[in-house]
Design a protein around this nucleic acid. Structure first.
Lengths: 199, 199
DNA sequence: CTTGCTATATATAAATC
DNA sequence: TGATTTATATATAGCAA
């Protein structure tokens, strides 16, 4: 037995001897308590969307998710967007493809943007904690924050749109110059697979 | 410092001193290696569907997911089924109102990003004019540009995701403080389709 | 393209503040 | 009650098959 293993086991023994069992595993079945169910839904929906987002970026995959909460409220996630992916799937529309591929780096601006977001949120929470009194002035500030975020959202969407446009231009140029990276074609293999769903 | 903490730190130190890092954390950006990307997609798609399944059961929620692999093959998960959830969503979509919303400003970084885009495009056209026939070297450069753009797209998507998350938080705050504001809509569909090949 | 094997990395159920 | 903090439960990256 290695020292590492010994320490691991020792640590485990110590922990098992402690009283607090704490967090535990749950059965995958309908959560009865309404409130708990709501909390679970909220957390897991966020987790699901996060995973979907990572999948789309890591693999350059198109993803669309639609969820109706226990309260029947709609939530959705889409990359590039729900509609396009959904229709592509529903119509099973075969399409020739043009180039477009992997990655590189320019995270700086991204981090800056996120930094700003964090700052805004921090300020919001800051004010929230401070105040016991939510007067108009505060409301106004919050409202301003909201508007700022809204603007950022719009700008993000706009940027995305611009990027997309350029991509199209580039593809056109590429085609024009007849630069073929890989003379590949694949329309035939459009096998649709279904995964289980269980009830 | 407790014995437990001591052991944990000791264990950590031992591990960090070892050469083999073993499994490690990865950045959320396009996986370059084709094979690895395929494996990642396969595993994460399975994980995503599993999570979706648990969510639907635990909370009795309706869920629909559609994914197109890097090889452009469709996969789907649905509870009760994709079609019903999708149509239910698309039907009320024309009147968006429920989740996510709003707008506002911080153009600097945005402009930087767009500036970069313009530079890239300029360089592209530059090369295009200069060269009658540039062959592989040029081709490679163009490909690199495309990859850079792709990366920016992904970053934009990630930003969007983060922004939406914060918005949800803010909406919660808003609700709590009963700040009634006109229901604005967040429409991410500035971009429709997206082409791709690979694999 | 899917699967099994582990060491890590993440997600998250409860507890807590 | 929502946000934050743990201690577990799960998901997965890197390798091979």
């Amino acid at each position: 037995m290695s020292i590492t293993e010994f320490l691991e086991i020792t640590l485990l023994n110590i922990r098992n001897s402690e009283e607090i069992m704490g967090r535990r595993k749950i059965e995958i079945k309908m959560v009865k308590d309404t409130n708990t169910r709501q909390v679970t839904f909220s957390k897991r929906r966020t987790g699901l969307f996060k995973k979907a987002n990572e999948l789309s970026i890591l693999c350059g995959a198109e993803v669309a998710i639609v969820v109706f909460s226990p309260g029947n409220k709609p939530y959705s996630f889409g990359h590039p967007d729900v509609e396009s992916v959904a229709s592509k799937f529903l119509e099973q529309e075969p399409r020739p493809n043009m180039p477009s591929s992997s990655s590189s780096s320019c995270d700086v601006n991204m981090e800056k943007l996120n930094q700003q977001l964090n700052n805004v949120m921090e300020q919001l929470h800051e004010e929230e904690k401070k105040g016991g009194v939510y007067d108009k002035a505060l409301n106004q500030r919050k409202k301003t924050k909201l508007e700022e975020l809204q603007e950022m959202l719009d700008l993000a969407a706009e940027l995305k749109f611009n990027v997309k446009s350029r991509l199209d231009d580039m593809e056109a140029v590429e085609t024009m110059l007849m630069i073929k990276e890989k003379p590949m074609e694949f329309d035939e293999n459009h096998v649709s697979k279904r995964k289980r769903k269980e009830d």
